[in-house]
Computed example of a mutant assay.
Amino acid sequence: MFDAALREQIVVGAADALATSQRALSHAPRRLRHALKDHLLQRTAAMIGPTATTAA
């Protein structure tokens, strides 16, 4: 899911690519964010992208 979100850069596109709902895609990375203590993705005006830690 995380890879699809980075590739598509919008939650709708990533959810469609994975044949899942936006809600499922938004909630799935919660445990990963908690474990890594990083938000992983950040929102811009119209897209999502990796945080500096994720991009490194």
Rank of each mutant, 00 (worst) to 15 (best):
A17P: 00
H34V: 10
L36Y: 11
A19I: 05
L25S: 05
L36V: 09
R33M: 12
Q9A: 11
P29M: 05
R30I: 10
A35T: 12
P29K: 09
A17M: 01
R31G: 07
H34K: 11
R23W: 02
A15W: 00
R23P: 00
I10V: 12
A19R: 14
L25D: 12
R23T: 01
A4F: 08
H27A: 14
P29F: 07
R30Y: 12
Q22P: 01
L36T: 13
A5R: 05
A17T: 00
T20E: 05
L18D: 04
L32F: 10
R33Y: 03
L36H: 11
Q9C: 08
A5F: 07
L18M: 11
E8G: 02
A5Y: 02
V12K: 15
R33E: 13
P29H: 05
Q9W: 07
A15C: 00
L25V: 12
S26P: 01
L18G: 00
T20Q: 11
Q9L: 07
A28N: 05
L32T: 14
L25Q: 08
A15G: 00
A17F: 00
R7L: 07
L36P: 03
R7W: 06
H34L: 09
S21H: 01
Q22V: 02
D16L: 11
L25P: 04
V11S: 06
S21R: 01
R31Y: 10
A28P: 00
L6M: 14
G13A: 11
Q22M: 06
A24I: 03
L36S: 11
P29S: 10
R33H: 06
L25T: 08
A15K: 00
A17V: 00
R30S: 12
L36K: 15
T20W: 06
V12C: 04
